[in-house]
Each structure stands twice: as C-alpha cells, then as structure tokens.
Design a protein around this nucleic acid. Structure first.
Length: 694
DNA sequence: GAGCACTGC
C-alpha cells in the first residue's frame, strides 16, 4: 500500500510543515511539539508566518508584486491564500490562485487548507492538476494548481482574468514552466494593474527576482503617476521552523565520493546517537556501488543498518520501503538521488551525507541533443540537502567536499532549467499566446539565442510556423493545443489522413511515460524474455501497440501485467493520457480510426513527426553504427530496443541518450522514400537518392 | 549486450 495520500481516501495525519511536497505519517505517533489537541486556529497562529499577517496584507494591497522569502516550515503556502481570502481578495466572484511545481504538492497543500477552513475539497478550496480538476466553477475561491496547468489556462484566458491574486510558490526552483509563467505574468501586469502577484522564493534569488519585476523595457513611467499599486516589488522575509543542522566538511578533497560516503555512513553509525541517515549520490549506478560496498564491509560495522536505495526509476513497492518505520535498535540508511532533495520528504532523518554532485541535463542546440552529465551542485542545493537533516530535531550534515570549495568555488545558484533545455514546446506555447517576438521576450533568465533559433527551425520544418515565424493555421494552432512535444503532436495530426489515429494516440501515450516495463532489481533477464513476446519487426513503437492490445485483451488485468513484466501503474497512466488525447483529437476534428494491422500507416505517421531523426546504418559497419541524416552524427541502437542487433537499414529514433556512445531509444523502421514526402523542405530528393541504391 | 537526475501539460 502506497504511503502517498490520495484525496478522497481516508484522511492522513498531517505533518506540521507543509512545504516539502509530500505529506505522510505512517504511524500513530503523537505530535512531538505537544499541540495535537490544539484547535486548528491555535495551530495556525503558531506558524511563523502568522506574525506577518498584517504586513503581508498591507504589502499586497499596496504593491503589484510581493516577494515572500520564507524557509521551510514558515507556513506561507497554506496561510497566505487564507489571509488573502479573509481580507476579501476572493469576494465578488474573484479567485486566488497558488501554483506549485509538482502535482503531489498541489494535492497535499489543497487538502490541508481545506481541512483548516473546514470545507469540503472541491468547493471553496479546490485544486487542478492534469487529469484531475477538483474545483467548482461557482464555489471555488482558493485554487491550487501546477504552474503547467496555469500556463494551459492562459490559452483560453490570456489575462487570467478570473484571478485577483496569483501566488507562485517555490519560484527559486526555477523550473521551466515557472520561468515561462513569471515572464508571462509580468506581461499581464501591464494590462491588468489590479492583479497582484506573490512570488515565494528562497533568500538568494529574491533580489534578482525583484529586479526582474522592477525593470520594464518599454513604456517606463506610463502608469507611474497612476493611483494603482506601486510597481517596485516589496520583499518580505519570514523565518522558517527547521531545526539547527551542524555542518562539517572534509579536510582534503576526496577522490572517490562513493567510498567516502560509505566510510562516513559507517563512522556515523559507530559514533553518533540513533537517527536515520540520508545519503545523496548522483544515480542508480552510484547507489548500487555504495550498497555493494556497505554489504562487503568486512569489519561488520554495518550491523544494525537497514540500507535502502531510492530513485525515481525504482518500482513503487521498493520506493515505499523508505517510508516504513525504522525498527527499534536499527538505523535506516537511505541512499538516494536528487529525488529526496525536493520531491519527497523523509521523516526521521537526522544525518545527511552530501557528495556534492548531481546529474544535470544540458542541451546542445548545435547537435540538438540533451546530455545527462554529473556536475557539481550549487550552494542553494547544498543548503537544501543539509536542511533535510533538521526536520524532526537538530541534525548533522557531512559534506564530502572542503569548506574552501563550498565558499569559494561552488556557484551560488544552479543554471535555470530554461538555459539547459530544448525549447520547442516552450516556444510554441508562447507563440500560441500571441507572443511573436520570442527573441525579445522578457525572461527571468534568458535562454541562449542558439537554442531559441534551433527551436524556431524545428517548428518551421514541422510546418508549425511560417516564413514570418507566425503559427500556421490550422496546423500550428492544432499542435499548440495538444499537450505533448510538437513532434509527437505532428505525428497525431498526420495519423488523421493515414487512418491510424487510435494506434498513434496509443504510441504517443506510451512515449510520454518513462517506461512501461517493470524493472525490478535482478530481473533483467526475465524482462528481456517478456519483451520478446511482444517484439515487432517494425520496431519499438509497434511493440508498444502489441503490449497495449494484450493489456486490453486481458481486461486490463494487473496480474497479466505482472506476468509480462509490465508496469501496471504505467499502463493505467497510458489509459489516462489516451483518454485526454482522444478528447483533444476529437475537438481538433481528427477522426478516431484504427488501421487494424496496417503498420505502414503507423510508420508513415511517425515519419511525419520525426523525419528529422532519420538514420541510416553504416554500409561497412560491423558494430551496428548508424549516421544521422541531418548531422552525420554517429549513433547506435540502444540495447533495450527490440531492433538491437537487428540493425535495419533505415530507422527513425524517438530520443537519444548519450553515455559513452549516443544511443537511440525507441526505434522504428522506415522507407527512405517517405522522408522527402513527409518533409520536402527538409529532405531534397537528390540529396537522398544516391544512398537509396547503395 | 547495456543504461535512464527530476518534474510537468
């Protein structure tokens, strides 16, 4: 049973501090601070933010933008929306919005606020995340939502006119959609002087955020004389409620952070009082290696340790183990990726070991490839990791780097996601909101011009924008409506003429998930065998169709999934996404039609979206090397693909993962003659012809 | 015969 609470089920016990995202309480242990019987109102008044109630309301009244700097446990997320409502900001049909970067945070914060206000969730207090709209058009006054959902709402209501105040929470995380949202909100402010913004941010970022909202590139002074709120942002700082964390550093740089982490764990276990240990490493490989070393410990210092891995790709049942209570006399060691830095909160952690690195995505606009590389974390990240030790009582953090390095060499903040990503989806979103001058858009952090230009090129080649970089009609507007990567959306549009929309929508849904295969530890061989049962000669996309057909024929049975090494939760998600996509397809006038067993239609639809990912096998290659048609990059079929070692002559890939080699994930066979048909501007016949006969 | 930090619509 999952420890995550889903609204509508039995009410969980709430942790006093709501900021971390996940709320869960596994045991019936009573609240340590002794106010378990205090009234809701008394509990609210104990939160640090309560002292600032009047100040916050005054600043929001008098300033267009208020930046609230508040650390974990201040109570800002749950209290500020309530203060605003009490002060009348939700009167006469208006609404207060509060955005979060993650779905789980939206659900848990909304239910907490609903509970504090004594109202049923979905009435006065509601929330909206993808696939779940728990709001009432008439009744809802305070609405929690992901920033991605608010961006989608702008497509129907560009000025977000139903909201009187919009609070953007966790802005310091600088996620892609938060940054796009902030840029757009600044634009909306010029048109709606009565709108109030509250940006919740961590200390370091507050000043640059204020500078962003203070600057205006044009029309300076136009409404400076008006009677509206002041334009320069107010900054208010609210203290947190975390416990003190004592930090220590290594004296000399370590050469092997995995070994250093393991010996730190053993020495904590040897010398320090009870309390769980949370270790931050970079990925699955690191985690496996560290667990191996701990198991091999020959001095038996590992007695009494319960060692658990934690990363997103881990099956859910294994993930849930980290939430089980630590048995008396034992000590839990959770060896985790960055998932424990923001997305999950672990109670009972007293010691944190921080290796100082994480895997980060970097996008190269020249090759159009996103790379995942191990890179040093920022000081902001290091502080966040350390804070994970001080949630229940004073804790300790062991940094596996020197203090000198932390102070002098570590960068203070990470690179915002928008400067590390492919921008195709982002650009089409802005275009659909009528923002034509993408290069001149006022971003909280500007992406590189190269990345923007590359995104415009890709959209042009897909026929989404025209020679004037305007959205084409209907293609461009239709693709903007579909909440997927534009190349996938193009594939769905093309399926209409090819009569295979049902199949292509299934493929799009599967591709939008991490993986539909169940990858339990030590069962790699069984997984490969299971894959063979569904493998299609045409490639991975058609294999997904076989899996989905089997799933439907089994009456969507979980035991069928289990027997076939398929992730049942992932298949349910496939169904959710399918339902949403079919609804959108119908709205766009795409006929829902199956092509039965005509896989040529499906392959042509994939080609229509992904023609730029075409590759040809090297004529004299013995190791399965391919070259991309676009850039002559050397690439290989990933060993997880059903076409691995089959090496058909012409393929199209869905994505590339780069490690020592560039591997193509999710590959399908095509005929080269389809390429100029799908994209005449992109492929000229004469360019391809000599190769067709070789 | 080898690899996938984390989100989100």
């Amino acid at each position: 049973m999952s420890k995550f609470w889903k609204p509508g089920t039995e009410k969980p016990r709430f942790v006093e501090d709501e900021e971390g995202g996940v709320l869960f309480y596994t045991s019936a242990s009573s609240s340590s601070s002794g106010h378990g019987y205090a009234s809701v109102e008394r509990q609210r008044q104990r939160l640090p933010v309560f002292k600032y109630r009047t100040a916050i309301l005054y600043l929001v009244e008098t300033h267009a933008t208020t930046i609230v700097v508040g650390e974990t446990g201040s109570g800002k997320t749950t209290q500020i929306p309530q203060f605003l409502k009490e002060a009348g900001w939700a009167d006469s049909g208006r609404m207060i919005a509060c955005t979060q970067p993650r779905r789980l945070a939206v659900q848990s914060v909304a239910s907490r606020v609903g509970e504090e206000m004594g109202v049923k969730l979905g009435e006065e207090v509601g929330y909206t995340i993808r696939f779940e709209d728990i709001t009432d058009a008439e009744l809802t006054r305070i609405k929690f939502l992901t920033d991605g959902v608010l961006l989608r709402e702008m497509m129907d209501d560009p000025l977000l006119s139903k909201y009187s105040v919009i609070m953007v929470d966790e802005a310091h995380e600088r996620s892609l959609s938060t940054d796009i949202l902030l840029g757009l909100l600044k634009k909306i402010q010029r048109r709606r002087p009565e709108l109030r913004l509250i940006i919740s941010s961590a200390t370091i970022e507050a000043k640059s955020m204020a500078a962003f909202f203070n600057s205006s590139r044009r029309l300076q002074g136009r409404d400076a004389e008006g009677h509206g709120p002041r334009k320069e942002p107010a900054i208010l700082s609210v203290e947190g409620r975390g416990f003190n964390v004592q930090t220590s550093y290594v004296e000399d740089p370590v050469s092997d952070y995995i070994r250093a982490a393991v010996s730190t764990i053993l020495s904590i276990h040897d010398k320090e009082p009870m309390g769980d240990i949370l270790v931050f490493l970079t990925g699955k490989d690191d985690i496996d290696a560290a667990m191996q070393l701990l198991a091999e410990d020959s001095h038996h210092k590992n007695q009494g340790l319960i060692v658990l891995p934690l990363y997103s790709g881990l099956p859910r049942a294994d993930q849930d183990l980290v939430f089980s209570p630590t048995p008396r006399g034992k000590r839990k060691v959770i060896i985790s990726t960055n998932i424990a830095e923001t997305s999950l909160t672990l109670e009972g952690v007293v010691y944190v070991v921080d290796c100082g690195f994480s895997k980060q995505r970097f996008y190269n606009p020249i090759t159009d490839i996103e790379n995942l590389v191990v890179a040093p974390i920022s000081r902001a990240s290091a502080r966040q990791r350390a804070g994970r030790a001080g949630r229940v009582r004073p804790g300790k953090c062991y940094r596996l780097y020197t203090e000198e390095y932390y102070v002098n060499e570590m960068s203070s903040d990470g690179v915002p996601e928008i400067q590390r990503s492919n921008l195709v989806s982002c650009v089409i979103q802005l275009k659909s909101l009528g923002i034509d001058n993408i290069l001149g858009f006022d971003w909280p952090a500007s992406p590189s011009p190269e990345a923007l230009i590359r995104a415009l090129e890709v959209l042009y080649s897909l026929g989404v924008i025209d020679d004037d970089a305007k959205l084409t009609s209907p293609t461009g507007f239709q693709i903007a409506e579909i909440p997927l990567d534009p190349m996938v959306s193009k594939m769905i549009l093309a399926s209409n003429d090819l009569g295979c929309s049902e199949e292509v929508i299934t493929i799009a849904a599967v591709l939008s998930l991490q993986s539909i295969w169940y990858s339990g530890r030590g069962s790699e061989k069984e997984l490969d065998e299971a894959k063979l049962r569904f493998a299609a000669a045409e490639g991975d996309h058609v294999t997904f169709l076989n899996v989905y057909r089997g799933y439907v024929e089994s009456n969507k049975s979980s035991s069928w999934c289990h027997r076939n090494h398929i992730n049942y939760h992932a298949m349910k998600k496939v169904d959710d996404v399918r339902k949403q996509l079919r609804r959108i397809a119908q709205r766009l006038g795409i006929a829902l039609k199956s092509c039965d067993h005509d896989m040529q239609a499906v392959r042509k639809a994939v080609t229509a979206g992904f023609f730029s990912n075409a590759c040809r096998v090297e004529a004299f290659s013995h190791n399965g090397a391919y070259k991309t048609i676009r850039g002559s990059q050397e690439v290989y079929i990933h060993p997880s693909s059903v076409l691995f070692r089959v090496n058909p002559k012409w393929v199209i890939y869905h994505s590339i993962v780069s490690t020592e080699r560039q591997y193509m994930r999710n590959v399908i066979t095509i005929e080269p003659s389809w390429l100029p048909e799908a994209a005449p501007h992109f492929y000229h016949r004469q360019q391809l012809d000599p190769r067709l006969h070789s």
